[in-house]
């Protein structure tokens, strides 16, 4: 079920909760770290192995923690209450970085991370209210800490109105949570950053999912009159788009991603040989790089929908023309060989 992120009122939230039935989530990924609701904070080899698999795209859409209230450390009635998503990768960040004692309420976001789930309304007012109403908290305070990045999905004043809980938005990164509890918020805790490590986290999964096209490129290269390097051209195009572009992102000259991609894809030019066909294939490779970099807009933390639509209004017609010219060049090249 997809709940749209939009403003709503208390009545519609409550009536929707009555109609919502959630599926039970398997606990196979967390069974070894749970003793009743107590969480083992030590990361085990199996956690790292599964997490590595997720980063490589294996079972990425089914890596969930059952919803409910968990104990991190030995929380008391004074301990803070945190709310988080049910993505196991996120849950493991909590296990690694929370050193103080907390109650952690895991809500159902379909195994999607906090920010993405909030953007789609899944980490939303409805789910937060539903879980708060259905959970018995034995604490002597009234504060609930939500991740800051849940804010696009949650109307905090509405949650307060229905549940009478005070909603506090915590820091962006869970690493800062202990310091936030101790000393309160500081400016950097509220900033979303996009450093080299963040930019490269998605590179493995993108490279691997591009391999299926590499098979097609390999077969294309086997056809008569096609350049033998076809496979390598597309592999290089994928590497430039998926690895080099994220690395160089802060120093690239254009604001439009597809132009930066096109610029970097000039690295493919040495593949051009004396024949016309190779020019066409290299042009197709450049188009591929440019398309990958256009799609990287979705992985960044600083693009807006209106901006992306603006970029695409020039990028897509340009790419279609480029693709047409490239294909024609290949055909002309082959004809020249044949005739």
């Amino acid at each position: 079920m997809n709940v749209k992120a939009s403003r709503s009122d208390a009545y519609s939230i409550l009536s929707e909760i009555k109609q919502t039935h959630r599926a039970v989530v398997s606990d196979r990924y967390v069974r070894h770290i749970l003793k009743d609701n107590k969480v083992d904070l030590k990361m085990h080899l199996i956690d790292y192995l599964w997490n590595l698999g997720i980063r490589l795209g294996i079972n990425r859409n089914n890596y969930k923690v059952p919803t409910g209230l968990y104990e991190f450390g030995t929380p008391s009635a004074d301990s803070p209450v945190l709310v988080t998503c049910n993505y196991k990768l996120t849950f493991d960040y909590l296990r690694r970085y929370l050193k103080k004692d907390y109650w952690v309420l895991v809500i159902d976001t379909d195994g999607v991370n906090v920010w993405c789930a909030a953007g789609k309304g899944r980490f939303g007012t409805l789910e937060v209210v539903r879980m708060l109403l259905n959970t018995k908290l034995s604490v002597n305070h009234n504060e609930i800490i939500l991740p800051q990045l849940a804010a696009p999905g949650v109307e905090s004043h509405l949650v307060t109105k229905i549940t009478k809980k005070k909603i506090i938005y915590g820091p962006v990164r869970i690493e800062d949570m202990d310091a936030f509890i101790e000393h309160g918020i500081t400016e950097p805790m509220r900033h979303v950053t996009f450093n080299l490590k963040n930019r490269l986290l998605l590179a493995p999964i993108e490279l691997i999912s591009s391999l299926k096209y590499m098979g097609a490129a390999y077969l294309l290269g086997l056809l008569p009159f096609m350049p033998k390097e076809t496979f390598w051209i597309f592999l290089a195009a994928s590497a430039i788009g998926n690895v080099l572009h994220p690395v160089l992102l802060p120093v690239l000259p254009f604001k439009r991603f597809f132009l930066n991609g096109l610029l970097l894809s000039a690295l493919l030019l040495p593949f051009v040989k004396a024949d016309v066909t190779s020019i066409g294939v290299v042009m197709l490779g450049m188009l591929y790089t440019s398309f990958i970099t256009l799609n990287f807009t979705g992985s960044t933390t600083f693009t807006s929908l209106t901006g992306v639509e603006r970029e695409m209004s020039t990028a897509i017609p340009f790419m279609l023309k480029w693709g047409a010219v490239a294909t024609l060049t290949v055909i002309v090249g082959i004809l020249m060989e044949v005739l």
Binding site: A5, P152, F257, L294, N295, T297, T303, L305, G307, A315
Partner: peptide, 16 residues
């Protein structure tokens, strides 16, 4: 106070 309005979305070309 509903003082802020914005057309909400995700800046993601493949989603578009």
């Amino acid at each position: 106070a509903s003082a802020i309005t914005v057309k909400v979305g995700t800046g993601c070309a493949s989603a578009v």
